[in-house]
Design a protein around this nucleic acid. Structure first.
Lengths: 199, 199
DNA sequence: GTCTATAGAGGGATAGAC
DNA sequence: GTCTATCCCTCTATAGAC
């Protein structure tokens, strides 16, 4: 952490970008090296194997999400606003032409190490746990309309977003918008909540 | 087509299997060759480049689906039964530990040729077109409960299934079951329809 | 912590015999 | 239509200098 932004961080930034655009086996150390203006070996110094890089990458998604949830938790937002904020995060991916990191690991599942799978499963668990809690909270306060149990409801929402993000790539952003609208409708999230979440 | 099952077909079978398990760049001609007991070059004879193989692969998914829809169309099934049959197809993938072919291309989008993308987009279009028609039909006959316009409703269902299939890999089949139940609930598909579709 | 250099494996692809 | 043989490239990974 000598430089303003350490090489390790810059590697992870570049890797994340490539990861969500080309898939895990779709990018190489060379791609990262070229983008950073360093050599192949420099990256191996920070991440000895590509599996190490994969695990670190997914770990950082987990850290980012944890950081985001803690921040959101401190702002005293309503359940609807929290969900709207989450949808906003996903929308950003869509605009950037990226897909959900989970989808990448899922698709290449039998091509990645056990450690990578485990870290991805952990990320999925983090997302689900948080969303379940928010749905529960929203149900109790009657801010959100949650049909059935919260856990399956959360799973369905995550699946919708993951699939929608992918289809948007193939068939246009409108497909993701369709998913977004449906999620909001189902939960009864108003446009007022969206305003707040956007700020 | 000299042998009982031509090599070309056997190649596509093996490739489809690998494709849905390891992703597109996650398998090689070597994998297929080893599985078929032939040499690398034999596969290049049938599919000069890997992009050719990818396009042929997706083309076959399209053909299979077209064949399936025509068969289903001739059986005079209700709309609910048609949808139930489609869900059955997806469930089979789940049981086999596979994901939707579309998801694979979406994830590796920036790593495949334009021709592969186009064929995948075509498959997505086929699925959507068929499902929209069935939803429309079900709405008119009041067999299916379709909220809002049929097209976005179809898109959402396809996204749910694609995402659910992937998450099931990471977190267990129950996650796909959650998605299935939600899709059926939303459309108001009864268990009686499922019986017929299973046969 | 980054470099040069290189090993070693695997991948896509082709030529030419059979 | 399949084989052997081979080319060339890319990729992961390591050793050792700076």
């Amino acid at each position: 952490m000598s430089a303003a932004r350490s090489t390790r961080k810059r590697i992870l930034d570049a890797a994340a970008e490539l990861f969500q655009r080309r898939g895990f086996s779709g990018f190489s150390y060379q791609h990262i090296a070229a983008q950073l203006g360093v050599r192949n070996a420099a990256i191996h110094y920070h991440f000895p194997s590509k599996a190490d890089l994969g695990v670190a990458l997914l770990g950082r998604y987990r850290d980012s999400f944890r950081w985001w949830t803690e921040q959101v938790g401190r702002q005293g937002l309503s359940s609807a606003q929290k969900v709207a904020g989450f949808l906003e995060l996903e929308s950003r991916y869509c605009l950037e032409g990226k897909v959900c990191p989970l989808g990448v690991v899922c698709v290449e599942f039998e091509n990645v190490t056990e450690a990578v799978r485990a870290e991805a499963a952990g990320l999925a668990s983090d997302l689900e746990t948080w969303l379940v809690a928010v749905l529960e909270e929203g149900r109790r306060s009657q801010e959100l309309q949650v049909e059935g149990a919260s856990r399956p409801a959360a799973v369905v929402i995550l699946a919708q977003l993951q699939g929608g993000l992918q289809l948007a790539r193939l068939r246009g952003h409108r497909h993701f918008q369709d998913v977004l609208h449906r999620v909001r409708e189902n939960l009864g999230i108003s446009s007022a909540d969206l305003m707040v979440a956007a700020s």
